[in-house]
Amino acid sequence: MDTTGTLDEALQRLHISGPERFGRLSNHAPMAVEALAANGQASAVHRWLDLYAPRLEDFPTGVEPVTDADWACALGDPRRAADWIGYFGHELAGRPWRDVLARWWPRLLPGMYGGAAHPVIRVGHAVRTLLAGESTGPRLTELAHGLGYWAARHRPVTGAAPVPGAGSAAAALDAVPPLAEREGGFPDRLGRLRSLPVWAATVSEPAEAHRRLTELVRAATHRYATHGHGEATMLVHAATAPNAVLRVLPALPHTLWVPSLQAAWTASAAVTALYAPDAPVAYVPPGTVTREEVFAQALAHGDEHVIKLTDTALDVGDEQALAAALRAVQLSEPLR
Rank of each mutant, 00 (worst) to 15 (best):
V289C: 07
G18S: 02
I85W: 05
A171I: 07
P119C: 06
L14Y: 04
A269H: 05
A35C: 14
G159K: 06
T272N: 10
A313C: 05
T3W: 15
V163F: 10
T290L: 03
T61Q: 14
L51F: 08
R107P: 07
A325E: 01
A269K: 03
E293N: 02
V123E: 04
A269D: 06
D50Q: 11
Q262R: 15
P96T: 02
A324V: 05
L326D: 00
T310F: 01
P54G: 07
H301P: 05
W150I: 05
R128N: 10
H125V: 10
Y113P: 05
D70T: 11
P250G: 07
A282V: 13
A273T: 02
A263S: 08
Q41L: 12
H46P: 15
N39C: 15
R24E: 11
A273G: 04
G228S: 07
P206G: 08
A282E: 15
L173K: 00
R80F: 12
F59A: 13
V157D: 10
T288D: 12
D311H: 07
V271P: 06
D315I: 11
E57S: 13
P177A: 08
A279C: 08
E231N: 13
G86H: 08
A44S: 10
V306P: 02
R79Q: 14
G167M: 10
D315V: 13
A81W: 00
W97G: 00
A160E: 03
L109N: 11
R291S: 10
L131M: 12
G184M: 02
P259L: 05
V66N: 04
L130W: 07
G62Q: 07
P250L: 06
V294K: 00
G111E: 03
L274F: 09
R218Y: 01
P30H: 08
A298G: 07
A251N: 02
W265I: 02
V176K: 02
A244D: 03
P78S: 05
R212Q: 10
T214Q: 11
Y283M: 07
G94W: 06
A269N: 06
W84C: 04
T312C: 14
P30D: 09
A325G: 04
E142T: 09
H46V: 12
A175H: 10
R155E: 15
A219L: 08
L335V: 04
R153G: 05
L179K: 05
H154N: 12
D70G: 10
T290W: 11
R212N: 00
A166Q: 03
Y113S: 15
P30Q: 04
A151K: 01
A172R: 06
G184P: 11
A201L: 11
H145D: 15
S204T: 15
A300R: 12
A37W: 04
